[in-house]
């Protein structure tokens, strides 16, 4: 095998675990939901747009954010539910942007359909705001080459993949997922970085996402070995 490029700075693998914290805040109508979306901590917006991805990876056909699921199933506003589910979360690089997009969709809907403000959920079906507390820790492993990176990637849990691909980008406001950033900046491999960046984590399971990244890197290493 030819010698692969060795980065000056290694990729350090982290993982994160999440503990849901209850806020005691709840909404029974769409205006109440909107009011609370504007004022709850960003950790709550993050929770309700991402917990589904972590908890229900078996149900990929369901909407990927809790707001969409609730307005459709508990309030019975399928149109707003569809609009919220269609928000393309992958395009945003901060929780602020996601919150603004959700607010804009709900405000637009209430303007278009004023009667929507009078809809309400059944007793016990209110929307309860929860926030995510993230615990981030080093796995004590690092890679200097693409091969080392691949070997470790295959062994880590989906929580590690989730942290570097989604959480670091959104909660720590890194501009891109950590994998692409390192491959681009430290290995100078724009093509592989781009291929990984194009993956949409919101339309596949975390296992699926991991397999996709592994496959891209394996192919790249295969090409480098043949050349």
């Amino acid at each position: 095998m030819p010698e692969l490029k060795r980065a000056a700075e290694p990729f350090v693998f982290f993982s994160r675990l999440n503990l849901p914290e209850l806020t005691g805040l709840k909404a029974a109508t769409i205006p109440q939901l909107l009011g609370l979306i504007k004022k709850v901590p960003g950790a709550a917006i993050y929770h309700h747009t991402h917990s589904f991805l972590q908890q229900h990876d078996a149900f990929v056909s369901e909407p990927l954010n809790d707001f969409a699921y609730w307005v459709s199933s508990a309030v019975g506003d399928a149109r707003l539910g569809e609009k919220l589910a269609a928000i393309d979360t992958v395009q945003f690089s901060s929780i602020r942007e996601i919150r603004a997009a959700i607010v804009s969709v709900i405000e637009g809907h209430l303007k278009e359909s004023p009667l929507a403000q009078f809809r309400f959920s059944g007793e016990g079906e209110e929307f309860y705001f929860v926030k995510s507390v993230s615990f981030i820790y080093s796995l004590g492993r690092q890679a200097y080459t693409l091969k080392e990176f691949l070997d470790i990637l295959k062994q880590v849990s989906v929580d590690c993949i989730y942290f570097h691909f989604i959480e670091a980008k959104l909660r720590l406001e890194h501009n891109h997922n950590d994998f692409s950033s390192w491959i681009r900046l430290s290995l100078g491999d724009e093509e592989t970085a781009g291929l990984i960046s194009r993956l949409d984590p919101y339309t596949q399971s975390l296992d699926g996402l991991k397999n996709s990244i592994v496959s891209i890197v394996e192919k790249k290493i295969g090409c480098l070995c043949r050349s």
């Binding site: 503990l19 849901p20 914290e21 005691g24 209110e126 309860y128």
Partner: peptide, 14 residues
């Protein structure tokens, strides 16, 4: 989540 109420202490969902 439906068991939570406004409390003066942190409350977690487990």
């Amino acid at each position: 989540p439906s068991f939570s109420r406004r409390l003066p202490i942190r409350q977690f969902l487990i």
